[in-house]
Each structure stands twice: as structure tokens, then as C-alpha cells.
Design a protein around this nucleic acid. Structure first.
Lengths: 152, 152
DNA sequence: GCCAGATATATTGCGCACAATAGAATTGTT
DNA sequence: AACAATTCTATTGTGCGCAATATATCTGGC
């Protein structure tokens, strides 16, 4: 008869935290999509705009460090944001290796429209702020442990 | 003077959990990479193989339902697995719309090498199984709530 | 001042993800 | 039996994400 060997347990999909993270990321992406479509942004573009709304005129590198993304991802993304007239890319005069990203007035203005996004997500998650906050802390701790292990 | 307006707070908090999920997914991907390179698999391919190691000879649709992926993602991925001689794709005789995915002997054999993967991840996460399991359950609950909200 | 190494961005290539669409097979209804 | 609606897979196009590589610029040691 076909048995279900105990040795297979760690290989079972349902046991894997990573798949839970992976599929939750996709679920978030789908939840954000209708909200972000109104802003004309994708989720990674929205993350970049969040960084810039806090402080702009920063080099690509700073954005990459905040979002854990490299230039292979950011360069074309920022060019698309520039094509959409949300940001301006100018090479720094102090250090010509750097490209500084500044918001246009259109990019600044989009911040107001973006205020509706978080509450839309909060509603879709159907969770309390406290629960979400606790989970965020656990995930960040896990993520940082993984990144430390990778750096070794 | 430059103040940090309280009105910006919701723009930060609701987004933070999502970014935590998003960046943890990337960290997992990077953690899996060296382990999966030895198997010649990417992480999504590994997920497909996990499904098939549980039960193979299944239609593409079933795999998509397990992994929450559609044919636009799976068709080319499965063709690459076929090119690597890990699976065989054959159109069902009972229902000619379906393409059934079966493991080759090479695909079956890879399961043994894959047993080392979960413990490698466990080590990198530096967490107890109990902690990981608890987090997995919270995430799955959140993911399912998001998906329910999306279906409405 | 010169050169080696480090730093910042850009480019190329591959593999997801997913929306939109298409096309073939099946099912349900009449 | 005919046909409209549904189901399943494949295709196309866009946008990440990252490894590998390239190029220009800067910095420190001499």
C-alpha cells in the first residue's frame, strides 16, 4: 500500500513557511493592484515613491538600500517613473557617479492621492493594527536573520 | 521648520507589513538560491517539484491551484522543467484540454537530493520549528483573508 | 600627480508573475 | 443533434528581480 513516509514531512508544501511568505506577498500585490492602478503605479514603483515622499533628491543607492533592491531593478524602474513625469534624474555635480532622484510637482502631488491606499489594504486584511504590527516585527526579525546568514 | 506631519503616519504603518512580507520573500529567495543551485532549480521550479513529489500525473490546473499561479507562469516554467528532463508533459486522452505533468525517473531521483534543502533553510533562519510554524499559520490566515477580500 | 582599488550607475540576459487574449475541447441546454 | 457557455492551456506584452558585466568616477597610498 502507498504509505506517506514521515521522512517526507519537511518536503511537504504545507509545512513550508517560505511558501506562506511567498504566497502572502502575491496576495498583497493583488490587493494593492486596484488601489495602485488609480495612481498609475506598480507596487515596486509605489515603494520607491514612498521613499521619495519621505525625502527626495537622494541618490539611487540610498533608495536601493532602503528597499533592498539593486541598480538592475531600479534603473529601468526609475526611467519609467521619469517617463511618467513623476521624478527627475540628474547626475550629481559633486560626485558624478551618482544620479539624484527628485520628485516633480506631479510626483509631489501624487502623495495626496496615495493617502487612500493604506486604509484600503488595512480593510482588505481584516486585521487589527496591533496584529499587523506584531506580525511585521516577527517578519522583519526573520528577514534580518536570513540576511545575516547570507552575508556570512 | 520641517515637521513630520501626523497625517503621514497611515502612509507608513499599513505599508510596513506589506514591505516586511515583500522583503522577507526576497530574503528567502536569496537563502534558497545556493541550495537550489545544486539541484539546478529556481525557487518557483522547486515549488512545482514539491507538488509533483507529493503526487504526479496531475494537470497544470491542479499545480496552479496549489501554488496560486496561472498558466502564463506555469506553461513556460514546465517547458523548462521538461527541457531539463525532470518532467514529461502529455495531453490527457480523457480530456484533451488538459496537459498532465508526470515526473521522469530523473525528476523522481531529484527528490533525494532535495531532502537537504529544508534543513539548510532552517539553519539560515536561526529559528525553532515551533516559531516558524506559528508564523506560517499567521501568514496563511492573513493571506486567505486578503484573498477572500479580493474575491468579493 | 599617478595609479590601484573601491564605488555608483547602466546594460544584458534569464526567469518569473500576471493581464489580456486566443483557440481548442467539453458540458449543459434545449 | 446543435450551439452557447464554460474550461483548460498557450501566447503576447509589460514589469520586476537579480547575476554578471561594463564604464565612469572617486579615493587613498605612494
Amino acid at each position: 500500500m502507498a504509505r506517506k513516509p514521515a521522512a517526507d514531512l519537511p518536503l511537504l508544501l504545507g509545512n513550508q513557511l517560505c511558501f506562506a511568505v511567498y504566497s502572502t506577498a502575491h496576495a498583497f500585490n493583488r490587493a494593492y493592484k486596484p488601489l495602485l492602478d488609480r495612481l498609475g503605479l506598480t507596487y515596486p514603483q509605489y515603494l520607491v515613491m514612498l521613499v521619495l515622499w519621505e525625502r527626495d533628491g537622494v541618490p539611487v543607492k540610498d533608495i536601493g538600500e532602503r528597499l533592498l533592491l539593486d541598480s538592475g531593478t531600479l534603473t529601468p524602474l526609475l526611467k519609467r517613473l521619469e517617463a511618467a513625469e513623476l521624478v527627475k534624474r540628474t547626475r550629481s555635480t559633486e560626485d558624478e557617479r551618482q544620479v539624484l532622484i527628485a520628485l516633480t510637482s506631479k510626483g509631489q502631488a501624487l502623495k495626496e492621492k496615495a493617502r487612500a491606499v493604506p486604509e484600503g489594504i488595512l480593510a482588505a486584511s481584516n486585521c487589527s493594527v496591533a496584529e499587523l504590527s506584531a506580525m511585521k516585527n516577527e517578519l522583519v526579525a526573520l528577514r534580518d536573520r536570513l540576511n545575516v546568514a547570507l552575508a556570512e
